[in-house]
Amino acid sequence: MKILIQRQNLVQAIQNVQKAVSGKTTIPVLTGIKIVASKEGLSLTATDLEIGIETRVPTHIEEDQIVNVIEEGAIVLSARYLSDIVRKLPSQQVEIEVKQNYLTIIRGGKSEYNLHGLDHEEFPRLPQVIGNQVFSIQSDILKDMIRQTSFAVSTEEIRPVLTGVMFSLKKGTLKFIATDSHRLATRESVVEAPEDLEIHNVILPGKSLNELARLLADDSSLVDLVVADNQVLVQMDKTQFYTRLIDGQYPDISRIIPSNFKTGLTVKTKELQGAVERASLIAKEHENNLVRLNIKGGGIEISSNSPDVGKVSESIEDVSITGDDLLIAFNSKFMLDALRVIDSEELLIEFTGSMSPFLVKIPDNPSCLHLILPVRIY
């Protein structure tokens, strides 16, 4: 194998696939990136057996030649060393040549590195995801859906299904749900899908989705999702992302979302976020990061009290309140996680009582919903 490639394009391709390189493994080939050179250009692949990423660098982008494949072939090179070397090379063009016994020469400017490679035949093949459950969604919307839900997955392995985000598709509406049993986040969006296509109980690992989000473009380009029995394939412009699914039945969350409310609170998102952040400075982690919200007399008070540290209170008067007065306590981390992903100037919080779950919503926009369980204070 022998190629010439524009350095910046190679750097970008390495960064894309490097997210799937296995950090802790006893299988040496999984610490590497497989590079395949063909007449179409270059493809780079990495996998940790849970996720797999393959990205392509075409020979030409518009009129510019990006890759010149002098001799076709394949090699697996250490992801760590390949990334560091290519980023530091002084020239805009990189030459990669594979000799006998997988010895690989990387040249750029006056620098020349000799790296020991591995046989590409030892590298695991990415699964062939074939399925008729296919739909399309804008890249930036999918990225937002991940951002607004994946933070709520469980970090405990006791219930594996809760470490993932469950998605379903019905009548062209895609819904993401995540919960760790203390809080819940949901997000919906209309997608391009056959009218009769229905998908239920597909659980994507939260870690996989966070890696996917880093790959997704912040634009309206379409991304295809292909759902198979135990895999999902996400097809982007020049990159394919594979992830295994979590096996199991996701809990039915419809029963825990209240439909009747005694108190409603409309408040500026940033103002509430700032007040909770300031109160959380006093709240202690081993005491559930406890912050109190007191709705009384047409205003609200945010407070926190720690016997060892001190106390803090802050009032917010620019609010709209309906229903009964209320005193409720919650985990400030859970509330802040929700507030930070709400893209709205105002939010609506609906309460059914001091010991019942409460909902955080965007007024007049049902596509995004957060539920948080309160903390008992008496």
Results as ranks from 00 to 15, higher is better:
residue 117 G to M: 04
residue 303 S to H: 03
residue 194 P to G: 03
residue 2 K to D: 14
residue 334 F to K: 12
residue 121 E to L: 14
residue 295 I to Q: 04
residue 80 R to H: 08
residue 288 N to S: 14
residue 291 V to A: 07
residue 364 D to A: 07
residue 191 V to M: 01
residue 216 L to F: 01
residue 29 V to R: 05
residue 280 S to K: 13
residue 339 L to G: 02
residue 116 H to L: 14
residue 343 D to Y: 05
residue 267 V to I: 15
residue 212 L to Y: 00
residue 16 N to C: 06
residue 24 K to Q: 13
residue 275 A to K: 08
residue 236 M to P: 07
residue 180 D to R: 04
residue 33 I to E: 05
residue 143 K to E: 07
residue 285 E to A: 10
residue 62 E to S: 14
residue 163 T to V: 01
residue 111 S to M: 10
residue 15 Q to H: 14
residue 266 T to E: 15
residue 330 F to Y: 08
residue 300 I to G: 04
residue 315 S to H: 12
residue 43 S to I: 13
residue 13 A to D: 10
residue 169 L to H: 10
residue 273 Q to A: 11
residue 92 Q to G: 12
residue 359 L to K: 11
residue 61 I to A: 04
residue 234 V to C: 12
residue 282 I to T: 11
residue 283 A to F: 00
residue 227 V to C: 07
residue 356 S to L: 14
residue 342 I to S: 04
residue 260 N to M: 09
residue 192 E to G: 00
residue 350 E to R: 15
residue 61 I to Q: 14
residue 220 S to Q: 15
residue 208 S to L: 12
residue 229 D to W: 00
residue 68 N to T: 12
residue 68 N to K: 12
residue 51 I to L: 11
residue 155 T to L: 11
residue 52 G to F: 02
residue 210 N to M: 13
residue 312 V to A: 15
residue 326 L to N: 05
residue 141 I to R: 13
residue 337 D to S: 04
residue 210 N to I: 09
residue 214 R to G: 12
residue 97 E to Y: 02
residue 77 L to S: 04
residue 46 A to R: 07
residue 214 R to H: 09
residue 306 S to V: 05
residue 309 V to Q: 08
residue 161 V to L: 01
residue 131 G to Q: 06
residue 111 S to T: 13
residue 361 K to D: 03
residue 37 A to D: 05
residue 55 T to W: 07
residue 53 I to R: 09
residue 249 Q to N: 13
residue 337 D to Y: 02
residue 127 P to H: 03
residue 82 L to M: 04
residue 241 F to H: 06
residue 285 E to V: 04
residue 354 S to H: 10
residue 324 D to F: 05
